[in-house]
Amino acid sequence: MPEISVKTENLVRNFGSFVAVNQVNIEVYQKEIFGFLGANGAGKTTMIRMLCGLLKPSSGKATVGGLDVYRQSEQIKRSIGYMSQKFSLYEDLTVEENINFYGGIYDLNQKRIQKKRDEIFFSLGMGDYARTLTYDLPLGFKQRLALGCALLHDPRILFLDEPTSGVDPKARRDFWEIIHQTVALGTTIFVTTHFMEEAEYCHRVFIMDAGKIIALDTPTKLKNRYKKKSMQEVFVTLVEKQQEKKTNPMPDSNDKMS
């Protein structure tokens, strides 16, 4: 029985009368790469922000690393890493200054930061980019640097919100290389993406539409269930079905799952 990293029960978040996340139940296991798919506006970012303590849920329960998001968000913050959907490094600062800053706000001492900095440079094959302005880095490097910063304090759970949007396929593969290494070290990865090929790398995927779960399983099982060759096709089929339901709201119990 694998240990549970993230667990939600009937998690809801409203913005006014709009329901962005609607009664979501998930369990994410330790050392798992948990992929999170959904069209624009499906509620992925909202979900992650609630789990990271950036947004209070409207109702329902959620624990991260066994800690309650309502009462223990301070402790949660020490054990998670987060890479937001927006690019989150300071472009007017050098690479080194960015690393020092993020290390500093996690209370890492100078020696530890130094060590991590060398690791990041090594894994990025960046050579001596320490004094380069972040602005001048290629996007792929920036993204991996942001990942490095999110991993500085060795979080047990890492939340990545569309970490590879906008980068070329080669950089994306390099990025996933680091993700696999990180998981091997015992970290749980919670990742949202719009790239279906990335969904194939995940241990389990979770598909969301309009705030609701519409599928949750391993990529292989999902492909078998819908008799499709790729996650791309599975996703399109599922979303189309969902669309049909909205335009033609017939009760269809066969579609219920999770």
Binding site: C52, K77, F87, S88, Y102, Y106
Partner: peptide, 12 residues
């Protein structure tokens, strides 16, 4: 720019 969120998920 979104860096505020990045700071806010830290223990600061």
């Amino acid at each position: 720019t979104g860096t505020m969120e990045q700071i806010l998920v830290s223990p600061v």
